[in-house]
């Protein structure tokens, strides 16, 4: 048992979109040095059609405190390719506006549903487990968690 735990790794759901523990939790975006636009997922080339696109793209960590703009609780088990646990556990989803003016969607930490979620509430960006992959690794990504500020 302890051997298995020792081998259990945390792997990011996708490389380079967010920081991994033990770093501070942040979502990583790109910023165009010319039009100053933020892009997420990170972009190699500026995606603003009105930008000349010859500026460099800079990698930036977005602020990790935001506000909940919209949310839902998913009560049906999405079919594959979603990695649903068996038995299925309902999960919250939300859109959170971050200080840079960009809004990101993602899951909400477990334990929150229509009884305690509200549009406008303060949210923290956290990096948590999404599911366990076939090798037994914890697949990690950002989630949003109601904050007490």
């Amino acid at each position: 048992m302890s051997d298995q735990n020792a081998q259990k790794k945390q792997v990011p759901a996708i490389q380079g979109w967010f920081t991994m523990p033990p770093q501070e939790p942040h979502i990583i975006a790109s910023k165009c040095s010319l039009c100053k636009g933020y892009f997420f997922p990170p972009a190699q080339v500026c995606r603003n059609p009105n930008c000349k696109k010859d500026g460099a793209m800079e990698s930036v960590m977005l602020g990790n405190k935001g506000k909940l703009e919209a949310w839902s609780v998913n009560y049906f088990s999405p079919p594959p390719p979603y990695h649903a646990p068996d038995p299925f556990v309902p999960f919250g989803v939300g859109m959170v506006s971050l200080p840079e003016g960009i809004s990101i969607t993602g899951q909400i930490s477990s334990g929150y549903d229509e009884k305690n979620l509200e549009v406008g509430m303060d949210m923290d960006v956290v990096i948590e487990k999404l599911y366990e992959d076939s090798q037994g690794n914890d697949v990690m990504a950002w989630k949003f968690k109601p904050a007490h500020r």
């Binding site: 919209a70 949310w71 998913n74 979603y82 989803v93 939300g94 969607t105 899951q107 599911y131």
Partner: peptide, 18 residues
């Protein structure tokens, strides 16, 4: 879709909560 479970229905549900 595969990792986060975001889909068209929960998008509309989010639009609805807003």
């Amino acid at each position: 879709a595969s990792d986060f479970g975001l889909n068209i229905i929960n998008h509309v549900a989010m639009e609805t909560s807003r």
